[in-house]
Design a protein around this nucleic acid. Sequence first.
DNA 1: CTGAAAGCGCTTACAG
DNA 2: CTGAAAGCGCTTACAG
Lengths: 336, 336
Amino acid sequence: MTRRKPATLRDVASSAGVSRTTASYILNGRADEMRIAPGTVARVRAAVAEMDYRPNRTARSLRMRRTATVGLISDQIAGQQYGSSMLTGASAAARELQHVVVMGESGGDPELERLLIDEMRERDVDGVVYATRTARTVRLPEGLTEVRAVLLNCEDPDARVPSVVPDDEGGGRAAAATLLAAGVDDVWVMGEDPTPDATAGPRRMAGIRAELHARGTDIAGVVPCDWSVTDGFAAASRWLAAGGRAKGLICMNDRLAMGAYQALAEAGLRVPDDVSVVSFDGSALASWLRPEVTSVTLPFHDLGALAVRRLLDLEDAGGTVLLPMTVRAGGSVRDS
Amino acid sequence: MTRRKPATLRDVASSAGVSRTTASYILNGRADEMRIAPGTVARVRAAVAEMDYRPNRTARSLRMRRTATVGLISDQIAGQQYGSSMLTGASAAARELQHVVVMGESGGDPELERLLIDEMRERDVDGVVYATRTARTVRLPEGLTEVRAVLLNCEDPDARVPSVVPDDEGGGRAAAATLLAAGVDDVWVMGEDPTPDATAGPRRMAGIRAELHARGTDIAGVVPCDWSVTDGFAAASRWLAAGGRAKGLICMNDRLAMGAYQALAEAGLRVPDDVSVVSFDGSALASWLRPEVTSVTLPFHDLGALAVRRLLDLEDAGGTVLLPMTVRAGGSVRDS
DNA sequence: CTGAAAGCGCTTACAG
DNA sequence: CTGAAAGCGCTTACAG
């Protein structure tokens, strides 16, 4: 019983002895609305089952001008580790809403980006999520204004397109509050972000500062460095060698925390006994350090999911939505 | 000059004063073959440019029965970190071949998996790549035999479907060879894989053993543990506490190496002076350890790319293709 | 309650 | 060299 070519609606209809019209109504759940006789419905359903009929979505899309498809264009889909859970979140939300994700990765190449957007449009996607690996402001890619679109982890300065981003400033406040609550008010920060368009660094810094100010204190100092393990190690080592000391250290991401841990260990300083550490991201790496570092978590999964939901929600009011960052406690903050 | 609805081929043709047939030939690069007058070609191209015409791919797909789309179904698209570069590789290869990737993540749920496969079929994908996060044998999901398919990072025991996997056994040999070349022949291995269907562990182990045998020696011992940082740390600590010592340690993945590093450090042992360490995966994590751990690298990007290329290569001979794992040198093996 | 007909935007034999 | 026509598989007013 191997069928050669898939059954079409016409096959089903003729096998059930009805017109394509009737079969179509039944398959689209409009049997009641159309007051189709129960017997007819049963015959059609039987034919469908027997022939293993599956609607051809391409044909339906052509007719309906909807593809039940969302495009996801990103500079780096995978990039760093856990960030890819944006994709998981997006894909799960799409699935819930009966959509499927078509992905494209530009590698940051604006030319390729344009191509991808064009392609998505040709493919009639119901909308495009435009995502960046790191939180930043973006120059809106040409073509993106002519489709339904949502920005993910990035923002258009003119807010012409709805956007979903983490609340980095709130995260900064939470990081500082965590240390303050443990009685640590002598706080250094590792890693200022020199990348011009990046938003995470400045906002986290602003949040930290605001929280400390609110408690009548201020950042004790900043160790500038790139957001990488090796640079974190190097910078922290230099700082320590120069006599740098602090009861509390906030690292701008988990990789910096790893580098700082290495430097602290070499200097014979222990976490959290000598130094309390808080970092950002809440990546798996945070949980691998000893002790696990307390980290202000980026809600990647929810970011991805919300971007898709907003994209598909025609009532969406537009604007930027900030998703909260919550503190995931490890053992890196000393008990006060 | 805002156009309401996109131009169709009919618009282009009538604007250029030709039939849709002629316009279609020109747009599909068959102008020469059809010996269409250069003037006609020029007129059509001008109309295309002027109207910003873009072919409707849905219509074309319906007609051609090809969607220029490949499905990628995975248990965990993102899962662990760097593994997502399989996706990047797949996506890049698809792009080179003028295809686009439609993704679905099953979370390991067989029911959802079936749904996703059905959906891909309804969407007329030109083929499906079925990927697993960890290398293993799989029970072929129902429905996958009725589409063109390639397995990625997994194998069907009956080899009914072509498959692309890393050469873990070769990797195991390379790991052992690296230590032997440094004069280390007292080798312990951390992490046996108890997961029944997993293939990476047993194959790496077999490779290690084979290489050591070839040099007239054998594995000195095995420290069993899960492939995680925390379990690696715990197991290594217990082993060391019980007096365990070795000149060389092969860790089944980079996370285990991180755990082992932590345990060795606490025991006052230094890498590579006291112990040489080699691990598997070649993830970013490997490069973050101090010293960077020498790691036998999983070619994730190439795995993804090759899977898509084979899927789309109608001449493909079938069977399993092993991709080599190469040693990425760090500073964790002592100079001999 | 059900069917004949048009049409979504393409491609491609088939005729001239 | 170019065009009229059919058809891919659906959905949906419009008539009965």
